[in-house]
Design a protein around this nucleic acid. Structure first.
Lengths: 344, 344
DNA sequence: AAACCCTCCGAAACCGTTTTCTGGACGCTA
DNA sequence: TAGCGTCCAGAAAACGGTTTCGGAGGGTTT
């Protein structure tokens, strides 16, 4: 158990440019120029300054630099999803896009609470972030933040205002890709078990799936999407129903990896071969859900990292004076695994 | 698809105190005093200033404030775990402890790369964070960052330097609690299937479990811990082995929720009643892994949020001049669910 | 020796805010 | 009416950097 004691043990105060200058025997102006590679500094002088800076491990105060330059090199990531399912890949993508260390990210979680969001927004603007990425908790449109003194990019959930810049995963295309993959592996009698119908993601994926089926002159087995909740439990229940009512079914397209896990469990219990008799697919390609499924689950990856990179790129452009408008959709991709293996 | 166009459409520059003062017809000094509730400002004047500030939605520039005050109201969270399993609850706990909006958090992911860590560290120190929380990717000790101009608290993974302040989950106690719970529900022949033996977490939990058994005059069925990997796959394999070699086993304590899922699957396949014949427990209480297990999995919650709050609290104390030293362990708790229900 | 150029350093202004200090206006008392 | 206290507003300094500008010093040319 730690015990507080040496309150007086003075921690070395962060070094300032003045300290460096004093130590090197030059003025602060010269020290600044020497460290920043400006011209008109004698090589010997520069060396002295650099050595002094290293000796006291001087780190320039970004605050002071920012106050002059008018930009801070920081962005705010205002999220509503701290399960981290979407925010974190987006954060990683953004970090990559900015270039490590160039830009630091303030992460704030509003927890889907408008009051808390305003609060964090105020704090971020006060800290003069150069821009904002707003991550929603689902793909339904969310209210715009309105006009702010810094550019904003909405990721995952689009803004209601079409003038804003939003980057969202293409759920319609995801549904299409999934069905095309199933068709390509010889499936014809496809059921679709999805999550909560109130989520745009569920409806969009279903729309894409139906469109792809229609293009092949087919429709869903049972004629309709089986909406429910985003849980394994629902995946199990719905799969039982599907198997009971549609004996000829040869593929179950699940609205999420969790639902797919439920489906796989029931198929295994009933002794139905996957993918021999029935193929199973999920959406999200959530590593932690998928690793361990039997057989390994084919899933549609929504490319969150790419989405984050793209959002960051748009933000950089906007900060640079070239804002974008409207909703941009990010393509996704099918990750094929054993649960739909061709001819298995 | 967004298209860049109105690069010239000037975004409203953030208002400064000077703007407010000009609009209210006072000096910046008076404006500052009026907005900060200082004395010696005439009520009418104050009202004029406040109205002016609201009219142009003035937000004080925290950078300028920080440069005066010498503290920024920001902390850095340097993590190596952006699966977010540990970092995010810790971040949430820290946010809570700081008090919403008081303190903003820079989140950086070093991805277990020392170079990247140094890079982020430099950026954070340059931004004059008031303190740092360093989150490891596992509970093995990690190298200290050494002496920095700001206080540091190590969370999840302790620092190698006992002078540093570290907050870690009490894995030994977790193992003890788990076994005590199993004993309390009448189990006597307990097997322990755990993850990678190279992880301190695995060894500590096992040590706690063995101690609790010894205290009851028992030992592990089979005499030893079955170490492997942190996967469902290993959970399944090891459970088969246990059932084959130890027919009398009445509980399987699993080193993680994932391993426990594997165990549950195998028990179900073999038609063994859980918890009637065999109890199953996991560690971590990872909601997303647990929701959907049949029966619902009893698990030891490591209280990451509390850990994060505690780390934040220690950081605040250290910033306030009362640093703590040494490793502090956080208690954990058993969350009882169906997989160990008494007398079921 | 005067005029000139070049190299290099430092003084000072600036960013946006807070705080201290100075001082003007006004009212009250002696 | 002089003296004093109170109330309120503004000027100025400070924080830690960057940048501009002026100028000192030395060498070269006429």
């Amino acid at each position: 158990m730690p015990a507080g004691d040496d309150a007086t043990a003075s921690r070395p105060r962060a070094a300032t440019l003045r300290d460096v200058a004093l130590l090197a025997g030059v003025s602060v102006a010269t020290a600044s120029k020497a460290l920043n590679g400006r011209d008109n500094v004698h090589p010997d002088t520069r060396r002295r300054v650099v050595e002094a800076a290293e000796r006291i491990s001087f780190t320039p105060n970004s605050l002071a630099q920012a106050i002059l330059a008018g930009s801070t090199g920081t962005v705010g990531l205002l999220t509503n999803d701290l399960e981290g399912r979407f925010s974190l890949p987006i954060l990683m993508g953004a970090e990559d896009a900015f270039g490590a260390g160039q830009m630091s990210v303030f992460l704030c979680d509003a927890r889907d609470d408008a009051i808390r969001e305003q609060y964090h927004l105020k704090a971020l603007l006060g800290r003069r972030v150069d821009g904002l990425i707003v991550v929603g908790s689902n793909t339904d449109p969310r209210p715009t933040l309105g006009t702010l003194p810094v550019p904003v990019v909405y990721a995952y959930a689009p803004s209601t205002d079409p003038q804003d810049c939003s980057i969202v995963p293409d759920n319609v295309h995801a549904g299409t890709l999934a069905v095309e993959h199933l068709l390509a592996t010889g499936r014809r009698r496809i059921a679709h078990v999805s999550g909560d119908v109130r989520y745009a993601a569920a409806r969009d994926r279903a729309a894409g799936a139906k469109a792809a089926l229609a293009a092949a002159g087919l429709e869903l087995v049972g004629g309709q999407v089986r909406y429910g909740s985003w849980s394994e439990e629902w995946g199990r229940a719905a799969t039982h129903t599907v198997l009971d009512h549609e004996p000829g079914v040869d593929a179950i397209l699940c609205g999420s990896d969790q639902i797919a896990r439920g489906a796989l469990d029931v198929l295994r219990e009933r002794g139905i071969d996957v993918p021999g008799a029935v193929s199973v697919m999920g959406f999200d390609n959530w590593e932690v859900m998928i690793s361990g499924t039997r057989p390994p689950l084919t899933s549609v990856d929504m490319n969150f990292e790419t989405l984050g990179r793209r959002a960051a790129q748009h933000l950089v452009d906007a900060i640079g004076g070239s804002p974008a408008h409207g909703v941009e959709t990010m393509p996704c991709r099918v990750v094929v695994r054993g649960s739909t293996a061709r001819g298995a």
